[in-house]
């Protein structure tokens, strides 16, 4: 498992119905590309976050596939239209199989 992985998410606490909100996410991850070599000339194995998903009340909002050229601590920002109160769930899929998860509630009104 990649070391010191930590997700961070920023979602407004509340929004009006039909409002478009900005969601910011960042995961602390080394994003080792698999192209680099260590001092002995051996390839450092690839270790990246390869997929990011955000769901709202069970419905998918965004599904991103990430590639090796993406830099350390990937920051993803997107907009979502709020139609009802509920819960955003965020998932980051690591190359090693681990899944990091974070949830944020949002109220309407």
């Amino acid at each position: 498992m990649a070391k010191n992985v930590k997700p961070r998410v920023k979602v407004p606490k509340s929004a009006a119905v039909g409002e478009s909100i900005v969601i910011k996410t960042l995961i602390k991850h080394k994003m080792e590309s698999g192209q680099r070599k260590d001092k002995d000339g051996k390839t450092i194995p690839r270790s990246i976050i390869n997929r990011f998903v955000c769901d709202f009340n069970g419905q998918n909002v965004i599904d991103v596939s990430l590639e090796p050229a993406i830099s350390t601590n990937p920051f993803i920002q997107f907009e979502a239209v709020v139609l009802e109160a509920g819960e955003y769930r965020f998932f980051w899929y690591d190359d090693d199989g681990s899944v990091y998860e974070k949830t944020k509630k949002i109220a309407v009104g």
């Binding site: 010191n4 930590k6 961070r8 920023k10 910011k24 960042l26 602390k28 601590n73």
Partner: peptide, 12 residues
């Protein structure tokens, strides 16, 4: 503070 990359290290 979310956009500020230094906060990754503050978390640490």
């Amino acid at each position: 503070d979310f956009d500020n990359p230094a906060f990754v290290f503050v978390d640490e």
